[in-house]
Design a binder for these strands. Structure first.
Lengths: 364, 364
DNA sequence: TGAATCTAGTAAATCGTTACACCATCTGCG
DNA sequence: CGCAGATGGTGTAACGATTTACTAGATTCA
């Protein structure tokens, strides 16, 4: 590393380091244009790049932002992380990646460490209702953006949140199935503790009730209530759900709303294990609209999150200067999700035709 | 941030900052045990954590490592990034995430910036045959680990590489199809320029020739030779390949080796567009064995990369101290890939039976 | 003309940690 | 006893950028 320091630039330009520093920090109005030009020239010729460590030591913060996701191994979070990094480059920042595995304790440690290491802001993809566990850090001035978690009543003022309207999403999903004529619709999810999942479920319920049906009559599966789990296991959850719902005693659903696409795909796989055909025997709608939803066979109907837009917004807020504790009131951005209809959802079959196909099915 | 400095710890323990620093850097043999204990106690009581920026300014390097992948939006790289981050935490490091989109110019800029920002090492997932474009950085002492790119003859000595044996992988894939009885096997890939892809192709060819067949007779599709492309578009490549191969004039393959799972899934989707059934009409084998391979319908046969093992190895090398230019000769670790047979590959159908099944098929 | 005010820039302290050069004691031994 | 060599530390100058306080010299104004 042929290090060039601000001193060398200053010498080359025939000024003091202070003046070079002023140029670097956008205070070139404090000098005569000719001086500025000499400095610019010296910087270019020497290929000078300010030392981040020195800057951080002096100023306390870097240009880096921290990204805490459940797991980039999950395609949805992977796609999100990619968009975040793209947005970061555009904003002149770097991204420190952290996988919380939805473990609250890891989340907290990550946030604390990132903060102590001087990141400029943190984009936290959490599902916890309360931010109390990191409030001390927020109070100290952390610019926190929560993603996939809308603002909650008790949140510190400075916190910004970017999310879709999960209630609308759940509503759209259920409505779509109701319109197709389904009346036995299951809601499938791992633990439903998180605020976003609860919102999706409430949206689901709204649609059901509005249609004059009773949520109580619907089959439901929200297994592993107690177990926290990483996002990679989402598919396994779906698979297990399919087995439980279709081998148990309860009423069998003709359609399913899955909490996300990975769970939906796992559910499809589970149906397949049981000799059932997605779309024909059971309609399934996922959530997120990951790339693979369109690739699947049959292509999966899903609720799309405008991921690129959200990433851009989240990054803007994470690097915004006016943030931190004591600033103007924090914002909450709620984007509208979109129903993407593909082939995994169809009208329910009349019972007789169903049996006929089942026979064909077993002949395969 | 209630900052605690090394000075305060020193004062609390009744020693000088130098001594505390010695404890921090594992040189506690230079003092009497009692002193060490006093310092440890002071550190614990004050909740002291050394300031990274100051350390970096002084030492020149951080504990951070840079990870440059084509795109975490691609499930394979997402899964890899996750394992890398897990390994990093275990090694006391953080991960700076960069998406190159397989653009050589971006790769170079990322590597240069990461180096200048003082990362300890870089894990570079590149497909370029030559490392010349970043040799100046390597010469300056960068601890570089290339992933998915085995060591090449002209590589700088200090470079470590971790990869699967792609030749074996390609060979395993083709052999599997040959054993099932296929004789018309297509190789499907986007640009085949990269060293790993070329190796997979050569392995494929070896198996074909060994079986007494001629590679020249095989249908092949390596579209977009010239176009560099990001990994997210891999599925689109596969889909296009399916259309081209099955609507064009050439001989139709009965089996396909895809360069990776995303391309394979895209290919499956393309077959579906054309009314063909994966497994039954055409066998497909992918590469990587991403989580979704097992979830797909039909579950995709694939060549598995031992991703966790590789991530651990790559991280170990990236943080190893003995590295850098002038150290002992760099290593090249080549792991063996594994064939995972699922349902997307079957014996080719005899022509007559094929028609019968096709009829059943259209009745669905 | 003389005092006040600007303009364009500089000097030096500072951020927290580390490493190098020292320096008191103590111990052992001829 | 006197001195070499351990033992167990300490003092201080960096690392590179920023910022506050300050100052020569030019300009304005009454």
């Amino acid at each position: 590393m042929a290090k060039v320091t601000i001193q060398q630039v200053a010498k080359a330009a025939g000024v003091s380091p202070s003046t070079v520093s002023n140029v670097l920090n956008g205070r070139s109005d404090r000098m005569v244009p000719a001086t500025r030009e000499r400095i610019d020239k010296a910087i270019a010729e020497l290929g000078y790049r300010p030392n981040r460590a020195a800057r951080q030591l002096r100023n306390g913060r870097t240009q880096t932002i921290g990204l805490v996701v459940p797991s980039v191994g999950n395609p949805f979070w992977g796609a999100f992380a990619r968009e975040i990094e793209v947005a970061a480059v555009a904003a002149g920042s770097s991204v420190l990646l952290c996988n919380s595995e939805r473990n609250p304790d890891r989340e907290r440690r990550y946030v604390e460490e990132l903060w102590e290491d001087g990141v400029r802001g943190i984009i936290l993809c959490t599902s916890l209702a309360s931010l109390d566990y990191i409030s001390h850090v927020i109070d100290e001035g952390l610019q926190l953006v929560t993603f996939d978690r809308p603002a909650q009543p008790g949140d510190p003022e400075s916190v910004v949140s970017v999310s879709i309207d999960n209630h609308v999403g759940g509503y759209l999903a259920a409505s779509h199935l109701l319109e197709l004529g389904h009346t036995q619709i299951a809601f499938v999810s791992g633990s439903i503790q998180s605020v976003n999942r609860a919102a999706r479920y409430r949206g689901f319920c709204s649609a059901i009730e509005e249609a004059g049906l009773s949520v109580g009559d619907m089959p439901m599966w929200t297994g592993f209530e107690a177990l926290p789990f990483g996002d990679v296991e989402a598919a396994e959850v779906g698979r297990k759900a399919a087995h439980d719902l279709f081998t148990g005693d309860g009423v069998r659903p003709t359609a399913v709303v899955a909490i996300n696409d990975m769970t939906a795909l796992g559910f499809c796989r589970g149906l397949r294990d049981l000799g059932l055909t997605v779309g024909e025997d059971v309609s399934i709608i996922g959530f997120d609209d990951i790339v693979l939803a369109d690739l699947y066979d049959p292509p999966l109907t899903s609720i799309r999150q405008p991921i690129k837009r959200m990433a851009t917004l989240a990054m803007e807020e994470a690097v915004s200067q006016d943030g931190g504790a004591g600033s103007e009131v924090g914002r909450s951005v709620l984007l509208r999700p979109q129903l993407v209809v593909r082939e995994s959802t169809r009208a329910p079959k009349p019972a007789k035709k169903r049996d006929a196909v089942n026979t064909t099915e077993s002949a395969r």
